[in-house]
Computed example of a mutant assay.
Amino acid sequence: MRLGKLYNKYKDYVLFNKNLLISGIFAFFAGAIFTQFYSELSSDSLSNSIVTLIFEYCIYIPIFSYLFYLDNKIRYYHLETGKKNYNRIRTDIKKLITAFAISETIYSVSKVVLHYQLLILGFIEPYQTSMIASTIAWIIFLLIINLSVKAVHLFKSK
């Protein structure tokens, strides 16, 4: 009973984090595979780190966007008329951009720096460097994105 109440109170945040994790998992493994292949084409650790990050975003952003829309599409329609609420859509997009701008900047910098440093050390495989750097950067990212979403009031408290 109490768990159900707690879930209902924080349902939007739970679904938001679920979407982050699902899209992040796809990007995580795709990035690990990509960095391994890229390392066979080029020995430049900095370009490997940056190109892998870009590749991960190409996977992550569309998946997250789609999942977020699926979980929240009811919020973007007027209940009385059934028409799209474009003001709500614009407002939420602005809030998401604000929250993601901060957290993604921190994620990107920490991911590239960690990835680059691990590649330079050279004692583990490139795919492992990607996985380690992503894991550490994701922990930081998840903390910052949740604080940011709360700060911009993306979800109304019930």
Results as ranks from 00 to 15, higher is better:
L121K: 13
I139K: 01
R75C: 05
Y107D: 01
A99D: 08
G31L: 07
L147Q: 08
V113T: 14
T81I: 07
E104G: 02
L46A: 00
A32L: 06
I136M: 04
F37Y: 13
I102T: 13
T91D: 14
Y127S: 10
G31N: 11
L20P: 00
S110I: 14
V149E: 06
Q36L: 08
K111A: 10
F55W: 06
I120P: 07
E104V: 13
F68S: 06
T81K: 06
V51P: 08
L154M: 11
H153G: 00
N8I: 01
L53G: 02
S45A: 08
E40L: 03
Y10K: 14
L142H: 03
Y7C: 00
I25E: 01
A101D: 12
S39E: 05
I50T: 12
G24S: 01
M131Y: 04
W138T: 15
F16E: 07
N87P: 00
K83A: 07
M1K: 12
I124G: 03
I50N: 05
I140R: 01
L142T: 05
G122Y: 02
I54Q: 00
I97M: 10
S103K: 08
I120W: 01
S49Q: 04
T91W: 13
K18M: 14
A27E: 08
K83P: 00
I120C: 04
L15I: 06
V14I: 09
S47Q: 03
T91Q: 13
A99E: 10
M131W: 11
A99R: 04
M131L: 14
L96N: 02
K73P: 04
Y107Q: 07
R75P: 00
C58F: 15
F55S: 00
F100L: 09
